[in-house]
Design a protein around this nucleic acid. Structure first.
Lengths: 130, 130
DNA sequence: ATAGGGGTTCCAGTCACTGGAAGGTCAAGG
DNA sequence: CCTTGACCTTCCAGTGACTGGAACCCCTAT
């Protein structure tokens, strides 16, 4: 299968698939014309990657998960460990983002947003800054 | 004032301050020895930037906010507009992250995480992928 | 023969820094 | 006066995960 069809089926742009080959996540064979020739297994792997990426795993996480996926004798605890670490990072990021959101929402709410120059948002940025 | 002291007072690493000069956010004068010589105003601007960045504004947002901050005849609506757009982006990101978190938490919960190889996390990655 | 829609490589850019090397400057201590 | 160490300078390269574009090749249909 050519890269375009694979891209459609795996839900990844061709550029990204080439990039994944560059960094060794997939290793499709080549046809006589130099085109990449993907197997069903390759497509499956790429779709696996696409799914893992939408869940926010880093490329290196993906590499590890893929290795575990292909290791029939893996321990599920290894997978769980990676996922838990990732979950903890997401939670941390969520908390930070929520904090930012609250502060910003408060400021936006306080700003009347008209033609006059006085603005609580700028005041906050300047005052908290000093 | 030298860059080290400014860094401390503004809460930004020296490297970052040099970078901000590179991209034209601040333009400190230079002493006879070639060192950057920061004024109180520079420090204030840098602290303003630091605060805006912790609120997640992009550098380009910061540039615009700084320009508005220095424009005595600005309309607060302009500031509010930038902040509202940013808030909307944060909300979108929060929703995505929350969605990711829920899915991942569910999977982590479902995985027994022992020595056996069967793992709902990998199953999900593979199945949703097919 | 040609036109189009694939495919290929390689280089550069994104964002906001950050690390490191190589070298100049300054203040304090011996 | 010399040295030491902390500070400053510039410049180059790397981060993560792609993405855009140029220049070129290949395949199919008309």
């Amino acid at each position: 299968m050519n890269i375009g069809d694979v891209a459609e089926r795996a839900g990844l742009p061709p550029k990204t698939i080439r990039y994944y080959e560059d960094i060794g996540l997939v290793t499709p064979h080549r046809g006589a014309n130099g085109y990449r020739a993907f197997t069903e297994q390759d497509v499956h792997k790429l779709a696996f990657l696409a799914r893992a990426r939408t869940l926010g795993f880093t490329i290196e996480d993906c590499r590890a998960l893929l290795a575990l996926y292909e290791d029939e004798s893996r321990a599920s605890s290894e997978v769980k460990h990676i996922a838990e670490e990732h979950l903890a990072q997401i939670d941390e990021k969520l908390a930070q983002l929520q904090q930012m959101r609250d502060t910003l929402a408060h400021l936006v709410h306080a700003c009347h947003g008209d033609d006059r120059p006085d603005c609580p948002i700028l005041s906050d940025l300047a005052c908290k800054a000093s």
